[in-house]
């Protein structure tokens, strides 16, 4: 928890000369891989529903689709806090974030083992069956 908060910050205070403006370019840029790793760690350590949902809000708020690893960690976190609705909601979030139906299908395929293991239906499956 605390470590994630620290990691989110720009890490370096560089020894810049007086003539260089310290503007926004000095902010640390997080790579997709470190983002994924950070949220996988977060969801592994999230212990209650509020934390899981807060993490979901945060990782779905960026201009990227969270990696399947993050989604899987989030699904397992939802299972750990015993909230089925949140697990269904994760797939709705993915559907919102992806660019097209094909990508959504790819995510569904990728996460199929977890879904079958935990018994998670998507919203469409819930309301069409």
């Amino acid at each position: 928890m605390l470590s994630t908060a620290f990691r989110a910050r720009p890490v370096v205070f560089r020894n810049t000369s007086a003539f260089v403006r310290n503007s926004s370019s000095a902010h640390g840029q997080e790579t997709f891989e470190s983002f994924t790793e950070r949220y996988v760690e977060f969801f592994k350590s999230a212990q209650d529903l509020f934390e899981v949902q807060r993490g979901l809000n945060n990782c779905f708020a960026h201009d990227l689709v969270p990696a399947p690893a993050v989604c899987e960690a989030a699904l397992r976190a939802a299972r750990r806090v015993d909230d089925y609705a949140t697990a269904v909601r994760i797939f709705e979030g993915i559907k919102e974030k992806v660019e097209n139906q094909k990508q959504y299908q790819a995510y569904l395929e990728e996460l199929k083992p977890v879904r079958e293991e935990l018994g998670i239906e998507t919203k469409d499956e819930l309301y069409t069956s």
Binding site: R79, Y84, A85, V88, R89, L118, G119, L126, S129
Partner: peptide, 13 residues
């Protein structure tokens, strides 16, 4: 969750 009925899942959602 695999034991839940579809109604229970829908209700929870």
């Amino acid at each position: 969750w695999k034991e839940l009925s579809i109604d229970e899942k829908k209700a929870a959602y």
